[in-house]
Amino acid sequence: MTQSDHRPGTLIPGGAVFPHRHLTGIEGLEPHEITFLLDEAETWVEANRTRAAPDRRLSGFTQINAFFENSTRTLLSFEIAGKRLGADVVNMHAAQSSVKKGETLIDTAQTLNAMRADVIVIRHMSSGAVRLIADKVDCPVLNAGDGRHEHPTQALLDALTIRRRLGGIAHKRVVICGDLLHSRVARSNILALTALAAEVRVCAPSTLMPPAIERFGVTAFSDFDRAMEGADVVMMLRLQTERMAGGYVPSSREYHLRYGLTLERLAKHAPGALIMHPGPMNRGVEIDSAVADHVEQSAITEQVQMGVAVRMACLDVLTRRARGVKGWA
């Protein structure tokens, strides 16, 4: 789409190619909008590698990372992404702040808004919390994970990793295995990958499988070996320690027996598959070290690298309107 297609004054805020104020989830994004974000991220991958001329396009902008739930890698990734673009990044660890003193989420949102943030990145333990805040603030909001609902930048970085490694996403067989019930990563990935026409298989014990999952356009398995058959990508999810103790699965060693990704399993059922994990990993539970560190097939560190590029792209795209970028303002 060229600029000449637009008549002055008819542009939707945020540009016609990505007409969203916030990024609260993959749900609601059109396939071409996802592809657009991936294309934007692609340019930052190279820039991050060479680090030739620093790009300070968010200079003078304040980015608040409001994390109501503990996080290390996602917070770090967003912080680095903001700083690489020249933004003033402030981290708010709300898990140990006024929220503990009984302040409501809405009040916290209004406080952040009154401080005139230019973009707010939010992680919260309740599904829907980010959407709630997004409705109350004047600046773009980026969802860094809300409860079991969505974690859109993780899905984008996973899609980018697959696209770069396999040359495309359409018709690739992707197996997502692990605690899908409690996983926002799984939900966002299912939405993004099915939108991009991948064949998505999900695999978990029935105690950890969301009901009506087939309505997402995926095929559900409880047998990992069958699910892996002919897979192009095997994406393992983290099993939270507190769920290993008998509530959902009998033990970590039984889980490893049925769902652990081992070299033997990989060689037998999906010999060339790309191995992915959103981290942090439980080595020896859902994934063996030999698989996680596989020189050719593991893309786990590459995922982290893509994470910074994807988050830079999202921060850039969502602030284009405020920065008065031509065609977006």
Partner: peptide, 15 residues
Amino acid sequence: SEGETASRLGLPAAP
């Protein structure tokens, strides 16, 4: 209540 909507929204649901 368990179903597609609860699963999409990521809400804790009961059968």
